[in-house]
Amino acid sequence: MGERPIDVTERSGVLVPSNLERFAARWSPPAGSIADVVDTYWAVEWNLASNEQVTQRILEFPAITVSIESGDVPAPFMITGVQRSAWVRTIRGTGTVFAIRLRPAGLAAISSLTASNLPAQTPLERGMDATLFDMMSAIAEAEDPATRADEVIAEARAATPPSHEHLLANAVVDTLSRTVRSRTGSRLAAEVGASERAVQRALQSTLGMGPKAVARRIRLQEVVRQLSIPGVDVSDIAVGLGYADQAHLIRDFRGVAGVTPGRYVRENSSSERGG
Rank of each mutant, 00 (worst) to 15 (best):
95 G>V: 13
96 T>V: 12
98 F>Q: 10
99 A>S: 15
103 R>L: 01
104 P>V: 02
105 A>V: 07
105 A>R: 05
107 L>G: 07
114 T>L: 08
114 T>Q: 14
114 T>H: 10
117 N>Q: 14
117 N>T: 14
120 A>P: 00
122 T>N: 02
124 L>S: 04
124 L>M: 05
126 R>P: 00
130 A>E: 13
130 A>M: 01
131 T>F: 05
131 T>C: 00
131 T>L: 07
132 L>C: 11
132 L>G: 11
134 D>Q: 09
138 A>Q: 14
139 I>P: 07
139 I>L: 10
140 A>L: 03
140 A>D: 10
140 A>T: 02
142 A>W: 12
142 A>Q: 08
143 E>Q: 13
145 P>L: 11
149 A>V: 07
152 V>S: 06
153 I>Y: 13
153 I>M: 11
153 I>E: 05
155 E>Q: 14
155 E>I: 04
156 A>Y: 03
159 A>H: 08
160 T>P: 01
160 T>G: 01
166 H>N: 10
166 H>V: 00
170 N>C: 09
171 A>C: 01
174 D>N: 10
175 T>W: 02
178 R>G: 09
180 V>G: 05
180 V>F: 11
180 V>L: 15
187 R>C: 00
189 A>G: 08
197 R>P: 00
197 R>C: 00
197 R>F: 08
198 A>E: 10
200 Q>T: 11
201 R>H: 12
202 A>C: 02
204 Q>V: 07
206 T>D: 00
207 L>K: 06
217 R>A: 14
219 R>I: 10
220 L>R: 05
224 V>T: 14
226 Q>V: 11
227 L>H: 06
228 S>A: 15
